[in-house]
C-alpha cells in the first residue's frame, strides 16, 4: 500500500551531523557522509562526515566503513560478512545507487564530492546502515524456493542436462541462480516502494523464475498459478531499476518477463 507519510523520527531534516577530520599529515584524503540513526534516542537521522586517510585504508567502500568503525567511531553500525560480493550482507546505497560496499571501489565514486552512504531505500531502519529485510525474506519463502517433485527420488541425484543447468547459472555466470539475495534490486524498485506489501519485487520474482525454469522441478504450473496475480507479479511496470542496479550483473527484469511469458504461453 502506497504510504506517503513517514513514521516519527525517520525524516532527514538536513540536520548537521558530526564532523571527523583526518590528521593534517594525511596526503590522500577522502570524505564519507554516512547516514546515522539510532532507535535508542528520539532524534531524526543525520549525515555524519568522516574524513579518512586513504593510504591507511583498503580500496573498497566497505574497507572505509571498517576503518571508520575501528579507528574513528565504533558506534557506526552496518552488516558485512564475506567482503567479496557473495553474501549480500553489505548492500547499501552508495552515491545514489544500491550496491555492495565490498565490491564498490572508492575510486569508482565521484572524486569531486563526498561519498554519500545511506541504507537501502524505503525500508524501516534498524540502526544506521542496517535495514529491516524480514518482510522480503518472508516473500522469498512464500515462493517456496526449493525443488518440488512427485516422482520418487532416484538412486543418485536428479539429472539435468548441461544446457538446462546453463539456463540457471547463465553461460556467462550471470544466470538467476547467481542471485545472492542482497535486495539491492527490490529496494530500488518504485513499484515495490508503493506496493511492497503485495508485490513480490524483482529479487523474489527472479528466484521464482529460477525454479520455474528448473527442468528437475515438477511444480511449474502450480508456481505459475501462485504468481498470476495483479499485485504479486503484474505490479512490475518494467521500470528496469532492478537490472541497472544489480551489483552481480544479473537481469531481474528479464526473469520477470520470463514468468509473464510462461503465463502467456499456457493460455494459447
Amino acid at each position: 500500500m502506497a504510504e506517503f507519510t513517514l513514521p516519527k523520527n525517520s525524516e532527514y531534516k538536513n540536520t548537521k551531523g558530526k564532523e571527523h577530520k583526518a590528521s593534517t599529515e594525511a596526503k590522500n584524503k577522502k570524505s564519507f557522509s554516512v547516514y546515522r540513526w539510532s532507535p535508542d534516542d528520539d532524534e531524526n537521522p543525520r549525515l555524519d562526515n568522516y574524513e579518512i586517510d586513504l593510504d591507511k585504508c583498503g580500496p573498497m567502500v566497505l574497507d572505509a566503513l571498517i576503518y571508520i568503525k575501528n579507528n574513528i567511531d565504533p558506534t557506526l553500525t552496518f552488516r558485512r560478512s564475506c567482503r567479496e560480493g557473495i553474501c549480500g550482507s553489505c548492500a547499501m546505497n552508495i552515491d545514489g545507487t544500491n550496491t555492495l560496499a565490498c565490491t564498490k571501489a572508492i575510486d569508482e565514486c565521484d572524486s569531486k564530492k563526498d561519498v554519500q552512504i545511506t541504507p537501502l531505500p524505503h525500508r524501516p531502519v534498524v540502526k544506521d546502515l542496517v535495514p529491516d529485510l524480514n518482510d522480503m525474506y518472508a516473500q522469498y519463502a512464500s515462493v517456496e524456493p526449493w525443488l518440488k517433485a512427485d516422482s520418487p527420488a532416484p538412486q543418485r541425484e536428479r539429472l539435468q542436462s548441461p544446457e538446462d543447468a546453463d539456463r540457471l547459472n547463465g553461460h556467462d555466470g550471470h544466470g538467476p541462480a547467481m542471485c545472492i539475495l542482497c535486495y539491492c534490486c527490490t529496494t530500488s524498485c518504485p513499484s515495490y516502494w508503493w506496493n511492497g506489501d503485495k508485490y513480490l519485487g524483482p529479487s523474489t520474482l527472479l528466484q521464482a523464475s529460477r525454479w520455474i525454469d528448473d527442468t528437475r522441478d515438477e511444480a511449474t504450473g502450480e508456481r505459475l498459478d501462485d504468481l498470476e496475480d495483479p499485485f504479486k507479479l503484474y505490479r512490475c511496470h518494467t521500470i528496469m531499476n532492478c537490472t541497472s542496479t544489480c551489483p552481480k550483473g544479473l537481469n531481474p527484469a528479464k526473469e520477470i518477463a520470463n514468468i509473464k511469458k510462461k503465463i502467456a504461453e499456457r493460455q494459447h
Binding site: A138, S142, D226, E228
Partner: peptide, 14 residues
C-alpha cells in the same frame, strides 16, 4: 510469512 502470503493469488491479471 503470513503477511507475505496474504490472501493468496487471485489467479488473474494476465
Amino acid at each position: 510469512l503470513g503477511k507475505a502470503r496474504g490472501l493468496g493469488s487471485s489467479k488473474s491479471g494476465f
